[in-house]
Design a protein around this nucleic acid. Structure first.
Lengths: 214, 214
DNA sequence: ACCACACCAGAAGGAACCGTTCTGTTCCGG
DNA sequence: CCGGAACAGAACGGTTCCTTCTGGTGTGGT
């Protein structure tokens, strides 16, 4: 409570900016359909403090999702540019995604707002970077050849769907599940995988707002 | 449409029994918070046809969940009593759970109703059978020693959280993800798993109705 | 010293949703 | 030919939740 430059209306506002984003992140990760009042309560501010910053709930969600997308892009970039043991780079990437919980804030929220053009761009960029990353890891011989981008998405998404009350414990259990998966992703695979991985179109279809479906 | 004994009010009623349960299954698997009118529409019946059979939505959900639990018990029993290749028995069990989608109809619905005493019994029985199954597979040397019951639950649950529009395609993608996991579950594991598996208490905590939380 | 304004907390408005009940109809069975 | 079981869907009432509105407070400029 007793921050450093406590006084100043501007300072409080700046602090609230951060408080609100953090609260929104926590709340919507826990429940994508949470009411906006929950965010305000968690942040310890009034509702009007929210509406001063974001014109609507949808805008807040979009911002949150864009941040998550950006974080994901960072992680991919790190993985692509990493030097040293490729396997550890891959492992770090996957752990990073699970720890940052980006699937919960991107795909899980998808469909609740109309994506902004920037987000489309981020998606395209991310796709390219993803592809680059897969290529690198495969040519390094650490990733089995028959896993593809869609497979990784499914792995991280399904792991991030694990949720058991306590946040700390949830994180631990997810990392445990990840370790299982990692073992299976590593080259060489025992038997070929059945079916085909999730395609880009299939992944993309989830981003169209629910209102516009069918 | 042209069934065998098409006429008869009793016959239609019996047919509706089934239609309603099937529709409810589909609807609530797709969206656990779906309105009850959605079930009626999917079943092609009126709302009153539903309320004639179940006193309330909660009762319908409970019935659905109980059926899912029973199906799960069947699968465990089959696995325990299976003869022949233990690995194939285990694999069949996991595929069975994923295909029947029992996690979506049990755990995912948990908390939306107060469990019936029968369900508690089923849970206890299931637990014992589960334990028996794990013991068998481990002593057969096909399951790595450091995976436990909670791990399997997490695996099936997270796989069943995968969902991409089309039902048929979703099934295929889930089976693909399962194959990855299976490889990782098989003895011998490369490295020990981190953390501890989800405990029975943790799993059980999710069944207490949301109203009663905190 | 003081005041205009940025900022904020929380109540009020108003619309949408949904579980349940109610009304009127159909058609089997005796 | 009638009594009533079964049904479709409208109506009701309660709840939820986004958004706007009201009233209050402290700050920075003058």
């Amino acid at each position: 409570m007793t921050d450093k430059p406590l006084s100043g209306r501007k300072a409080q506002a700046a602090r609230n900016d951060k408080l609100i984003l953090e609260a929104a992140h926590e709340v919507f990760v826990a429940d994508p359909e949470a009411p906006i009042a929950e965010v305000a309560k968690r942040a310890g501010v009034g509702i009007s403090a929210l509406y001063r910053r974001y014109p609507s709930k949808e805008d807040l969600l979009r911002k949150l999702c864009a941040d998550g997308l950006a974080r994901y892009l960072e992680l991919v970039s790190e993985a692509v540019e990493a030097e040293g043991d490729p396997w550890e780079a891959f492992r770090a990437f996957m752990r990073g995604v699970v720890l940052a919980d980006t699937p919960s804030i991107t795909v899980r929220l998808a469909g609740t707002f109309t994506p902004s053009p920037e987000m489309f761009k981020a998606a395209v960029d991310g796709d390219a970077a993803n592809r680059e990353m897969m290529k690198r890891f495969k040519s390094a011989g650490i990733l089995r050849a028959d896993v593809e981008n869609g497979d990784l998405q499914m792995v991280t998404e399904s792991i991030c769907s694990i949720n058991i009350g306590d946040a700390e414990r949830t994180r631990a259990v997810r990392l445990r599940a990840l370790e299982l998966y990692l073992e299976a992703l590593r080259e060489p695979g025992a038997a070929p995988l059945p079916g085909s991985p999730v395609s880009d179109e299939e992944m993309g279809a989830r981003w169209i707002p629910r209102n516009m479906k069918e």
